[in-house]
Design a protein around this nucleic acid. Structure first.
Lengths: 115, 115
DNA sequence: TACTTTGGTATACACTAGTATACTGATTAC
DNA sequence: GTAATCAGTATACTAGTGTATACCAAAGTA
């Protein structure tokens, strides 16, 4: 009897990888998560913390991320209406990915300068 | 004197993050790296290992990745001309990112099913 | 009164990421 | 002679990403 497939499954792994890319892919989602983790909660606050982003993109991305349950939108209907965005505990599982990517980016920039 | 900025720099971090996204962003680069790390070396081999990718996209992405020095293209000009792609040691720094993303994707799929 | 801030939406457009399909020339296989 | 494989290129197209600008109503500020 041949050995049963119990260890690694490349096809499953590539699918998982592509699922993740689907959820956090694009130019803005990880920067937004990072911003939220840095304590920014309000729309304009987040916008100011990510230099190039436009209101349209931020709005679009926040909606998608809310749908994917990686952030929560809270509305406090007081006098001027306060809206706050927060990461879910689930979102924190991106922590390692983001930190690894920040580290990589710093190293890459160094390497390019030395080159 | 106020405390000097020595610890975290959100602006620098977001830039590093965006640099990394620039290098490995898009639908295909990480799956390609993963495929190469799984031992695939030849164009058609890589293509077969990533279900939906077209020759055009694979070709385009491999060129970009070669330019960014995260892979190497080796040509053996024997009779039928053999071309092999290999990851550079530098490319292996993506290992943690990729594994974290695979893990996340698996968990996410579970969560969605349970929901 | 006019201006700014807040949290966005609406519209129009440009750009590029990605798809689909066909094709190349050389080699090997039938 | 025909078909298949290899490593791609060429062309044309669509869809999605991203930009730019203007606008909204409500509240606060000068």
């Amino acid at each position: 009897m041949a050995e049963t497939i119990t260890k690694r499954n490349p096809a499953e792994e590539i699918q998982a990888l592509q699922d993740t890319i689907y959820v956090i892919g694009g130019k803005w989602k990880l920067p937004i998560i990072n911003s939220l983790c840095n304590g920014n909660k309000r729309f304009r606050e987040i916008q100011r913390s990510i230099p190039q982003i436009t209101t349209r993109m931020l709005s679009k991305e926040l909606k998608e991320m809310e749908m994917n349950k990686i952030i929560v939108r809270k509305v406090y209907p007081d006098s001027p209406v306060l809206v706050e965005y927060e990461t879910t505990p689930y979102c924190k599982t991106f922590g390692t990915i983001i930190q690894a990517m920040i580290d990589w980016g710093k190293e890459h920039r160094k390497m390019i300068k030395e080159d």
